[in-house]
Amino acid sequence: MVENRSESYVQGPVLSRREALLAGAGTVALAALPSQSTAATGSPAKEVSPMTLTMTVNGELHVLTIDPRQSILDVLRETLDLTGTKKGCNQGACGACTVLVDGKRIVSCLTLACMHDGARIETIEGLEKDGVLHPLQEAFVAHEGLQCGFCTPGQIMSGVGCIAEGHAGSTDEIRFWMSGNICRCGAYPGIVAAVADAAGRD
């Protein structure tokens, strides 16, 4: 009766992996938070004063009230629900969280949002225009510049920055100037080819 089982899977409510995680995680997160903030330090948590700021994300202006500890990555993912930008290492080592801030590629995990009032941020969600992929997105598809895809939004945003900086003139140059983005699947040949291709189209 394998067939029936697979049918019941298909016919059930269609949840994305993220929706399923969110549905299940709420109570756990609430219970875990307070103990985490005191256990690591042994001292009681101090009061946090929220801060209000504005950010233009992919052309849309947002007025946000945030915890000063939130990184731009956290604001994008948790506050604005723009989960295309990925949290890899969360310590500035992998590049998965790369976005453009005021036109420059940065790692959003090490960037406190409260230090960027008024900033203009571009993320992977903003590249597609009117249903048409950005040339670098197209090139990643054409050259298979990914395997699992987790690092891909960071790779593409970094590639957009790399091309804009004029550092995509040769394969060697691309490899050097894309070195801040780690791909654990090892899709580097496709990534480099995609950046070179998109740079050539500009």
Partner: peptide, 9 residues
């Protein structure tokens, strides 16, 4: 030193 992203920061 560092990476292009970190050098921008």
């Amino acid at each position: 030193g560092a990476s292009p992203q970190l050098r921008n920061m």
